[in-house]
Write a protein that binds this DNA or RNA. Structure first.
Length: 631
RNA sequence: GCCCUUGUAGCUCAGCGGUAGAGCACUUCCAUGGUAAGGAAGGGGUCAUCGGUUCAAAUCCGAUCAAGGGCUCCA
């Protein structure tokens, strides 16, 4: 099994780096339960619980673990808590810290623990006790608050000086919506005040590059109540989006794909045949017209299957690679929508590859290369997960084994590090998922490669093999960006809105000093436009500083200043977003430079400029492990 | 869907019981100014929607819609 532990530089804004990043320590020692930061956060969660107990003697307590950037504690309370309560809670916590209570560890028999928590009417603790295998349980007492807890903790509350409550949220007991809704309070804590302040500063910085804010500031896209969960693309954003789509289209053409385009609207029957109506029906928009039941397609697989079946197929056509940028609609729950990353209408850079088993390893290798090239194009780091046969799998066990071996072999022969998630595959086939991490430290599943042994059967798809028998093809579902909308949003955040020249909606802005230079400015613009460069002219009667400021704010890659000198010499004064002032150039020389950057899709923006810092490593598995450990 | 928070001009926000304000943006005028904000004047809001309390509601209450943070689910 491979891990990504040694992979340098997963980027996150969370995490001071220079001197022992707090989180990096947690992450680099996931099994070292004595980690000081872990203890501080875990202990601060108990201090929070103690304060809550003082304020609400009837409160019931659930769990309070440390997490990646702090801690939380879940409570059942007699009234809703709101951020306005934080002052009082933090005040009480401060008092508990100042009194420097010891954390006293004891080991109780299960029986004793049951009696204790039963007497105090703590159903969640009782349920936790039942889940513990040992005959004895670990108990920590701090001041007046005694909690079932595996620990470890700091010696005394005085060690938890630097904390802050951050937000309240609802959370179902054990994450199950059939269970009662508890109130969760999130907070964070650090070893030093400096680290706490730096963390809070970085959270603020992260907000500034939120795609929802940048999307409006840079005039890329908007949202509107008249279609919640959909992106309304503005001209600038749509231009950039088209460039991104153009990249994927070209990548597909270069790799032997053909592209189709199908309707959005279908007789629901199609999705009954595919099985989606049964498994995915709740997420589909459906309605009735002309005495038929219709739906908006939530995925492209079924109509691509239909395409394959439109004629008799030969083994000579395989692998058949069919791409579709279909418009998809999914009926996501109102509370789950979020910016452009979680929407109801989106487009995938989707493709389905029909092949037989013998093609698998080579085809996966090709896909790994396409994924790698794409993420490298934007200097995005990513993790790979291989998910294998689940308990409820369908199909032939031997086929599964061989397919999984092919996936592994392809990953290994391409020198990819990956983690294996046993039993996490879909019921219809194993898969490889790619997680990229955005600048807010969130990781997103973008690319995915999923094998499917079932769908071709449901559509009775066959091809004629070399021996003249009819065979059922295997299908690979694959996407690299995943959702184009989401991927675009990730790029905006990753690059802080400074898109590389090839994607930039406005590549060049030409600014004049006085009215005398208008004609020359338009001449230069025309020359650049002839070369398919997106150049705009700013001849407004504003001072040059004002025009520059506006162009900088809009993150235009090339800013050309034209005054009397430039007109006289036939030059342009070049200022670039990443490099600042560059001096004067011949317009044709500049044109050639820009054309070359566009052709090569150069990443001519400084990713570091966006304020990202590297941390040693931090991955999701450990966060989960931490959450499970504390109870 | 559930929990908490929020919803005032294109943007950022103030006002929090006596029927709307600022900065930026926009329009016009003056200024023609060399690398991140020149000056002046002006236009623009049924304060998310619907209902209630009140002599009086942007302000208090309720419902709905939407957004944000979570839970859940996923691309």
């Amino acid at each position: 099994m491979h891990t990504l532990r040694d992979r340098p530089g997963i980027r996150s804004i969370f995490g001071p780096t220079a001197s022992g990043c707090a989180m990096a320590e947690v992450a680099s020692n996931p099994d070292d339960s004595k980690d000081q930061l872990y203890r501080i956060r875990h202990s601060t969660a108990h201090i929070l619980a103690t304060a809550i107990q003082q304020m609400f003697p009837d409160a019931r307590f659930a769990i309070g673990p440390p997490i990646e950037d702090g801690f939380y504690y879940d409570f059942e309370l007699p009234r809703p808590i709101s951020p306005e309560d934080f002052d009082e809670i933090e005040g009480r916590m401060r008092g508990i810290v100042n009194r420097d209570h010891d954390f006293v560890h004891e080991t109780w028999s299960k029986e004793k623990a049951r009696e204790y928590f039963d007497e105090r009417d703590e159903p969640y603790k009782l349920e936790l006790i039942e889940g513990i295998e040992d005959d004895e349980v670990s108990i920590y007492t701090c001041g007046d608050f005694t909690d079932l807890c595996a620990g470890p903790h700091v010696e005394s509350t005085g060690a938890c000086q630097h904390f802050k409550l951050r937000k309240v949220a609802g959370a179902y007991w054990r994450g199950d919506e059939n269970n009662p809704m508890l109130q969760r309070i999130y907070g964070t804590a650090f070893e030093t005040e400096d680290e706490l302040e730096q963390f809070l500063f970085m959270v603020e910085e992260a907000k500034k590059r939120d795609h929802r804010k940048l999307g409006v500031d840079l005039d890329l896209f908007r949202f509107d109540d008249r279609s919640p969960g959909s992106v309304f693309w503005m001209p600038r954003g749509w231009t950039a989006y088209r460039e991104l789509k153009g990249y994927f289209r070209e990548l597909e053409e270069d790799n032997g794909y053909e592209e189709i385009h199908n309707p959005m609207l279908y007789d629901k029957e199609l999705f009954e045949q595919s099985g989606h109506a049964e498994h995915y029906g709740e997420n589909m928009f459906t309605f009735e017209a002309h005495d038929r039941e219709w739906c908006l397609k939530p995925m492209n697989c079924p109509d691509t299957m239909v395409y394959f079946g439109t004629k008799k197929r030969s083994y000579r056509e395989l692998p058949l690679r069919v791409a579709e940028f279909g418009d998809l609609h999914r009926n996501e729950l109102p509370g789950t929508l979020s910016g452009a990353t979680r929407v109801r209408h989106f487009v995938q850079d989707d493709a389905h590859i029909f092949l037989d088993e013998s093609h698998l390893e080579d085809e996966i290798g090709l896909l790994l290369d396409m994924v790698d090239r794409t993420f490298k194009l934007f200097d995005l780091r990513y993790d790979i997960e291989l998910s294998t046969r689940p308990d409820d799998f369908m199909g032939d066990e031997q086929l599964w084994d061989e397919a999984e071996d092919s996936l592994k072999a392809a990953l290994e022969s391409n020198n990819k590090d990956f983690e294996i998630h046993e039993g996490d595959g879909a019921f219809y086939g194993p898969k490889i998922d790619f997680q990229v991490r955005d600048s807010l430290g969130r990781s997103w599943q973008c690319a995915t490669i999923q094998l499917d042994f079932q769908l071709p059967r449901r559509f009775d798809l066959t091809y004629t093999a070399e021996d003249n028998t009819e065979q059922t093809p295997i299908v690979i579902h694959r996407a690299i960006a995943g959702s184009m909308e989401r991927f675009f949003a990730i790029l905006v955040e990753h690059l802080s809105g400074a898109l590389p020249t090839w994607m930039a909606p406005e590549q060049v802005r030409i600014m004049t000093i006085t009215d005398e230079e208008h004609d020359y400015a338009y001449d230069v613009a025309e020359m650049l436009q002839e070369a398919d460069i997106r150049a705009e002219v700013d001849i407004r009667s504003e001072k040059i500083g004002y025009k520059i400021r506006e162009a900088e704010t809009m993150k235009v890659p090339y800013m050309l200043v034209i005054g009397g000198d430039e007109v006289e010499d036939g030059t342009v004064s070049v200022r670039s977003y990443t490099e600042g002032r560059r001096g004067t150039m011949e317009p044709e020389e500049l044109r050639d430079e820009i054309v070359k950057k566009i052709e090569t899709r150069a990443l001519d923006v400084d990713v570091e400029r966006s304020g990202l810092t590297d941390i040693a490593e931090s991955h999701d598995g450990e966060g989960t492990e931490m959450e499970e450990r504390g109870y």
